[in-house]
Write a protein that binds this DNA or RNA. Sequence first.
RNA 1: GUCCCCAUCGUCUAGCGGUCAGGACGCCGCCCUUUCACGGCGGCAACACGGGUUCGAUUCCCGUUGGGGAUGCCA
Length: 459
Amino acid sequence: MQYTTRMVITRFAPSPTGGLHIGSVRTILFNWLYAKHCNGKFMLRIEDTDIERSKQEHVQDIYDTLNWLGLKWDGDVVFQLKNIKRHQEVAQKLLSEGKAYKCYCTQEELAAMRELSVKEGRTPGYERKCRDLKQELDKPYVIRLKCPITGKTEFTDLIQGHCCIDNEHLDDMILLRSDGTPTYMLAVVVDDHDMGITNVIRASEHLNNTYRQKQIYDACGWTTPEFAHVSLIHSEDGAKLSKRNGATTISEYEKMGFLKEAILNYLIHLGWNKSEEEILTIDQCIKLFDIRHVRSSPARFSMPKLLNINSIYMRAMSNEDLCLALQNFAGSDKYDHAGWERVLAGMSELKSRTRTLAELETMSAIYGNDGTYFGKIEADEATKNLFKNIIEENNWPDDIESLTAWLNEKIASHGKTLKEVAPAIRMALTKEKVAPSIFELFKVLGSKIVAKRLASSIA
RNA sequence: GUCCCCAUCGUCUAGCGGUCAGGACGCCGCCCUUUCACGGCGGCAACACGGGUUCGAUUCCCGUUGGGGAUGCCA
């Protein structure tokens, strides 16, 4: 048990080799929430040691995404590449202490051994050929950790519980490559230790690495942080969420018109639920969050659920805020000033019918545009006369109640019922079979535009 | 192949030895209603299987099956 008063420090450590995966966002969220819950810190470390694949644009993308989501990191960003000297020092120290050794085996030899192991049904791995070499050779070498051969390596994972492996299944891992650069395994451990990370919360694909990393901590004589391995997100067909079976990066969801609050709320409930309430504010999440109650099994991504959560957030927004969000999303030059005024006026009815900003953008066109492009409709003489009559009028009642009464009276005076003419009116006004109520349409569009559209529909 | 992890309605989950196994999404029905939504009410639907432990297992242990992950001088 730890009774230290050490401040909790978590971290997110991505390699900048692509867009941020939605699963990574969940990992970030858990790290961030745990840190906030404990009054600790959340740090960002860019693992840019893979020089071939690391790109500055992806680093920027990580910054942008974290900022967009409001999951701000504490302190300066750490770049792993800058710590290479330190990694090498640690490896050399282990070497001088006899806890590591030089291995001269070539990659070809290793590959052949691996193949043989699999063929013979053994756990594949390096078979410690150079471990007890007496003299140094004049050949390129890697530095390997002298791992325990017998016994077990175990730790308690905050999410997965007790994790254990027989050491015979682990081989002597490489610490320093033949070109002298550190491997991921070494770099992560050294950096996490140097940054004072107390809780490593990461994807469960790293669970197997953790046994190895534990051995490095032990060899260095360092305290291991607490680990928490978050399960992966699967797609709706049950396989690992990949580009082939769904949207993977967070920016794709942004482009589909999802609100960041909805994405966050959705992701946090993928594996965690501690409240009767489904919709929680970020402050409530901070208060309630406990990494120990995150489920250890993988969860499937559900688009219908995300759409539902998003629609709840959209409806909860004020019309003004939503209108602003829509302008941000669609571009404020999409409609002219008057057009945006109408969109705002009709927003209440618009938002109850749409689930994303993209859907809202599409439906907002019925108010935003003032054109008469809605085209001809089929209508009988009485309906046409009704339209003509409405077109001639220009002094409608202002409030929706009087307007309703006024319009109903007009319809009745032409020997029609609302039920009979409503579809035609809606089609003439919106070109859609589905839209807000026609009274609402009249009110928001105003007499001029209604007249224009009705006229063009019977022209 | 070998190793590691996981297993409650279709999906996300609550449960932490005794519950009519609760909620949410989706689905179905009804109400509201000029359409479609929103909203309201109701319904269908789950403890993977087999052994133990126990007075009693969804819950604890062991198998089986199924799913996922790892098996790099990538991270």
